[in-house]
Amino acid sequence: MDREEKDFLLEKVMIEYGDELVRLAFSYLKDTETAKDIVQNTFIKCYKNVDSFRYDSQIKTWLYRITINECKDYLKSWNYKMVQVKNFINTTAKSISPSVEKTVIDKYNSEEIKVTVFSLPKVYREVVYLYYYDSLKTEEIAQVLDIPVNTVKTRLRRAKQRLKPMIKEAELNGR
């Protein structure tokens, strides 16, 4: 593939999948700017490695896999761990302020479901996100995560089982 074809392909996938990939990265990282950086890295890797792409799967599935791997690498990094410590310190210091409490309460209703999903363990959260938010089929999720289709189905079922009481509890508490 010559440079012009690679440029065209990159532009096409950036337009077509950019927002989806940012949402996917955000589901792992919970930070918009970092998610955008991760997706930028995904597109760089796509550009560099498109010649080795075998078309065994859709390019979308390949981009999802790259993005997820980039997110997992970032979450293991020293930089991420230091950011988490700083955020914890800042949050603890700010929690004394009543305006922060009010802000959290105001935002809670719109964020309730997202928070509930994000509270799931990663193995359940990622399949729920890919299935319900990105509308991937179980077969596509299996390819993206490199796991068997039945594992995807099991994780979806178990995630639903875990979410059901959490949502009922939130409703009972008047949230």
Rank of each mutant, 00 (worst) to 15 (best):
A170P: 01
V123N: 09
V39A: 02
T61G: 05
E5L: 14
I44E: 05
D73Q: 09
E33A: 05
V127P: 10
E111T: 08
Y131E: 12
Y133G: 07
V39S: 03
N87V: 04
P98I: 04
R175I: 13
E171I: 14
T61R: 01
N90K: 11
K160R: 14
F43R: 01
Y132S: 11
W78E: 15
Y129A: 10
S97G: 05
K12A: 10
Y55N: 11
R23H: 07
I147H: 08
K153P: 06
V115D: 14
E126M: 09
T32S: 14
I105C: 05
V22I: 10
F88I: 13
I15F: 11
Y129G: 09
V85G: 06
S119E: 10
S135C: 12
K30W: 02
Y80D: 01
K160G: 12
L136E: 10
W78K: 11
R157Y: 15
L163P: 06
K107I: 07
S95I: 09
L136H: 07
T67Y: 05
E112L: 15
S77Q: 03
F88L: 14
Y47H: 05
I167L: 14
I44C: 00
D106L: 10
M166W: 04
S119P: 08
E169G: 07
V39H: 01
K81I: 01
Y47N: 01
Y131P: 09
D7F: 14
Q84Y: 03
K12G: 04
